[in-house]
Every structure is written in C-alpha cells, then in structure tokens.
Design a protein around this nucleic acid. Structure first.
Lengths: 333, 333
DNA sequence: CTGTTAGCGCTTTCAC
DNA sequence: GTGAAAGCGCTAACAG
C-alpha cells in the first residue's frame, strides 16, 4: 500500500539520498528539489518507514512509560499528559506495567534492551537498589516520576508531598482549630506515603501538638484499607476529630465507615484526603483534600524527557518539584 | 551496552543465521547448538534488536490502541486489559488518542502508514464513512471495540448495550413496579447511547407503557450534563419516579441535583445508571446500574487481535458481544 | 543441521 | 546541491 523511498526517488527523478534529505528538512537541498519531493510524497502518499528510520539512526521516537500498575485515575491522567505531549512532538507512547508479576526493574530492562524505545518515563513508589543499579548503567534518557527526589543521575519530577500534607494539617489546626488529628498513612515503602506522613508529623510538632501514636495507622492506599483503619480509629475511647487519609481512596473508605457506624461527616468526625481524584468532588459532603496536578505531571515528564532525548547530556539533570493545592470541601466542620 | 547478533555468533563460533534460528526456537537447530547459543546469549546479555527484527520481517509485535480520548475509568480499564494480554504474549501496547485535535481516522492512518504497529485496536463511538473507507483498504489486522456491530470487514467486540438497558428497565417495571421512567441519553451520534436508548424504549413498549417524549433528554455523558438534564426533569409538573441515565457519570449528576434541590434518593426520586464505574459503589445510596466488564473487553480485544495477527485471513471475522450485568444498589425505592 | 548470501528501507559519509 | 555506495541488525532463501 505505502511506497518506499526508492520508488519515490524514481518518480521524482532524484536519488534516494535526496529524498531522505528532503524528508528530513536538510538545509543543503535546493528549495525547488525539496518542494518537488514533498509534493510527490504527498501525492503518492509516501510515509517514511519509522521502523527503518529508527533502526538505522539508532534513535527511537517512542517513549516507554513504565508504571507499577495500570489502574486508577492517577495513572490515567499521567498517560493522558504524556500522550498529549508526545502527539504534539510526533513521538509515540508505549505503556508497560509490572502486572504484579514482574518487577518494575524487569520492565525497564525489557524496554532498554530491546531497542524499541528511545527514552523512558519511570513511575515508581520508590527507587530500590535494583532499579538504582539499572539506571546507573543506563544509556537511555530517563525521567523518574517519584514521590521524592531520591536519585540524581537522571531528570526527575516529584510531587511536593511534604508541603502538601503540611499545609493541609496546618490548615486544620489554624483555620479549623482542630487538635485531634489522626492519620491513615499509605504503605511506608512508598515514598509518597512517607513524605505525606512527614508533613503531618512536622505540622503537628510545629504547632506544638503532641503526636498520639495510636492515631497513626499504616494503610494501603485502598478504599478497603481506609475503611478498616477508620473503623479502628472511630471505635477508640479517645476518638480523633479529623482523620487525615493519605489518599482520597482511603478517605472514601472513611465515608463508608461513617455510613456503617451511622456517624455523620463532618459533624461526628471530619475527613481529609490527598490526591483530589475526580469523584472527591461528588462525595457528600465534598472532600477536603490536596490536589495533585497529575495531568501536568505527565506532560512535564514527557516534555523533560523529549528535551533530554534531543540533548542527551549526562549531567546537569533537572529536578522538578510540582506543587500541590489545598482544596477546601465540606468534610471538616 | 547490548551486543549484536554478529558478536554473539563470533563468541559462539557459529553463523549469525544459526544464532537467529536458535533465538527464534527454530526446530531445525541441534539441541546442543541451541543450548550453547542461548547460554552465551544469557551470559553476554544479548537481546535481539526488536526494531531490526520488525524491520526485516515486516511484522511488528506492537499493538496500536486508538481511542477517542484518554480519560476516565473506562479507557483506563481497556488499556489495562490490553496491556495484560500483550505482556503475556510478548507484545507491546502503544496508545494514541485523538486529542480532540485530529480525527480518529487520522490517528489510524498515522499508525498504519508509519509501519510501527502490527495491528490496531480501534475504539470509537461510531464508525463513520471516513473510518469505514480506511478500514476497507487497510492491510493491518484490526479489532474494533464499539457500541454496536456496524462493520463486518474486521473482528469486533461490542458491548451488549441493548440488552443491558432493556433488562435494567424491565427490572424497574416488573420488580420495582415503576412506570414513570425518564431517560437522559448519551449523545446520539454515539452508538452506545443509541443502543441504550433503544433498550429503554423497547422495554417500555413491551411492558405496555406509553413513552413520554418529554422525559427523554439527550445528554452528553458528563456529570454536568446529567445535572442539567435531571434538574429539568425534576422541575416538571409531571415528574418521573426514576431517571435512567445512560451512564454513571450522568447518574452522578443526578445525585448532585438531588442535593441541590434538597431531594432524597431513593425516596423522592430514583436513579439508575450504566457502566458501573468504580465510584458508583461508594455513592450514597449505592447506584443501581449495569456493569460493563471493561477490563475483559480490553483483554478480549487484544486476544482477538493477536490471534488475527498470527493468522491474517481476510474473512471469517469474529464478532464478539460482551454481556452486561445488572447491579442492584439502593438508588431505587 | 548449519553456513553463505542477499536484502529489508533508510541515513550518511564521501565524492563529484 | 546531489548521487553512489555502504551499512545498520536481523531474517530467509538456498546451498551444502
């Protein structure tokens, strides 16, 4: 169906080299020649075979997006942002998740070794030694999206989890005059979870509030986990006034608990979350939470990566920290 | 970093052809030779360059997933399902959306002409003439995921929208003894929307209930649209008992309206949706809706496509219809 | 069973 | 400014 460079060269009465140059906008071709080639290309519906091109140039304009899992709104937004930037720059997005079957490390190695992708966006809850090792002897441009800047041998984008959590708690204490704040954290091997917890702890401390260890429960970022933890908290003798769930999913779990224990939010207890997922605005009452601009995160990562792919220096890496935003709903009285 | 077939052949003391055969599990190589090659490959960390391989075989094990937009849970689940099957079969998933800037047709043509992908999964609200034309002279194996089987020159997977909606309405009428049912449809250029509306209309008719045209409003599948339409419906003199929103997002809009008009669901009016998105289970009360197995849809599509890519016959296409499931919540009294 | 050879479509020296 | 020719890493006849 689609013709090759040879055929096009024949039709144009020029060599394949000239066609190649014309297609690649080489300044050394005469304008008239270029115009001729391009018009023929259009007429004959010629499209350079990208595989062949990548093969010979050893450069691929395919970006590999490695994620721990393909699930939920957050990842969807990231993909969306990456795709958007890729489209504009004529790059392609290839997704890959660990599928719970292989490690993230394996997924990266797979991408790197097969020669398919020209750059990698890596999302991972934390950079372990295995990944660190791979990234270190990695020749492919890579951007890490992480909860914390913990690797400086490649570009990175991180969410300002610490300040997001800090501001949220500070708001509760100073604007809402609340002192009894419990925390359902995420799994502590996850950087986002750790940073949010740090923000929580420091905000309490800085405001002179003593931390009650019983009120800190490690959750798992799922609705179910949030439900379990909040049930525990709400059945305590000394019950917290507000629960800070480390993500909105767990906050939703708190809403479920409220319904089950026949308690009213925000009158009987308050809930705040983190992420500002789409549905949070439709919870009743609307959840007070911290907004993460995940779409922008994806765009930022893709932009940074493409920049690096075109100028693959091995130093002066960018480390972008994306700020969060406090969203005030009605889930705290 | 990664070595080529030539170097490996040298190390093994065999020809590149033999290495190639060994790597591709050609039965004609002696076991001993194969073992030697494979062990050397492992030791030297040899990975065949997939680009080169695809280039020469003119077969790509990359699947192009074309979607109208990359947004929301439905598409996320599709990607997830596709990715899962791709991973298992050693294929790769490339995503592409129309970005509201180019048409779906352009996205397909882009994939087809660049030689990158070996097959396409096409999700589209409807197959228009432009797409139809492209698919017709398309040499690439393609699977269409659509709301209705309206093209039979390639494999297709469709959701049983009609029966899903029919059963839902039938349930309302016969189990819940409700007669006054309104409908907020999706945009009518969308096949899913049309089929769901057909199910609604036929179910009413078959049960001897006269259709009230005023109670049918064309929505846009967004929360906001559902909110606007439901407000209109609930302010009518002759108000419906239950609103059937053509998707859960619009059903959520009905919940918002209820809050605003200070009406209680299900006592003052009922709501049913379609899709069974994740949050529907956390609405208060839980939404009665129709479940679409979107993850399975993605898996099914990828499985079918891979099968076709390995046996590219141009006839006897598969047309799979995926059934839906009635989910009974508490949003109807 | 294995090696030799040609060639996929494109880019890129190196001449002219 | 343009053409000729080599070659990217791999597979696929065709011999042997």
């Amino acid at each position: 169906m689609t013709i090759t460079i040879k055929e096009l060269a024949l039709k144009c009465g020029v060599s394949t080299a000239t066609v190649s140059r014309a297609m690649n906008d080489d300044p050394s071709v005469k304008k008239a020649t270029k115009d001729k080639v391009l018009s023929f290309a259009k007429k004959l519906n010629y499209n350079p075979n990208l595989l062949a091109r990548s093969f010979v140039t050893k450069k691929s304009n395919i970006i590999g997006l490695v994620m721990p899992d393909i699930f939920g709104e957050f990842f969807m937004e990231i993909i969306h942002g990456v795709d958007e930037v890729c489209y504009i720059n004529k790059y392609y997005t290839m997704v890959s998740s660990s599928h719970g079957k292989r490690s993230t490390a394996e997924a990266i190695v797979d991408f790197m070794s097969k020669g398919i992708v020209g750059g990698i966006i890596l999302m991972t809850p934390a950079i372990n030694d295995e990944i660190r090792k791979i990234l270190r002897l990695n020749e492919l441009p890579t951007v890490v999206i992480s909860g914390k800047r913990d690797f400086d041998r490649c570009d990175s984008i991180s969410i300002d989890n610490y300040n997001g959590a800090y501001s949220l708690i500070d708001y509760l204490i100073n604007s809402k005059k609340i002192k009894k704040i419990a925390h359902i954290s995420g799994p502590l091997e996850n950087n986002d979870a750790v940073q949010r917890q740090r923000g929580y702890l420091n905000a309490l401390e800085d405001n002179g509030i003593k931390v009650n260890k019983n009120w800190i429960i490690e959750g798992d970022f799922t609705t179910f986990g949030g439900q379990a933890a909040s049930t525990k908290l709400l059945k305590m003798q000394d019950r917290p006034e507000v629960i800070f769930a480390a993500n909105d999913m767990m906050a939703i779990g708190c809403y479920v608990t409220a319904r089950e224990l026949n308690l009213k939010i925000p009158t009987d207890f308050g809930v705040v979350g983190f992420d500002d997922i789409f549905v949070s605005q439709f919870l009743n009452p609307r959840l007070t939470t911290t907004h993460i601009p995940s779409y922008d995160l994806g765009k930022e990562a893709a932009t940074t990566l493409i920049k690096r792919m075109n100028k693959p220096e091995k130093n002066k890496f960018e480390h972008i920290i994306v700020p969060t935003e406090l969203i005030i709903g009605g889930s705290v009285k």
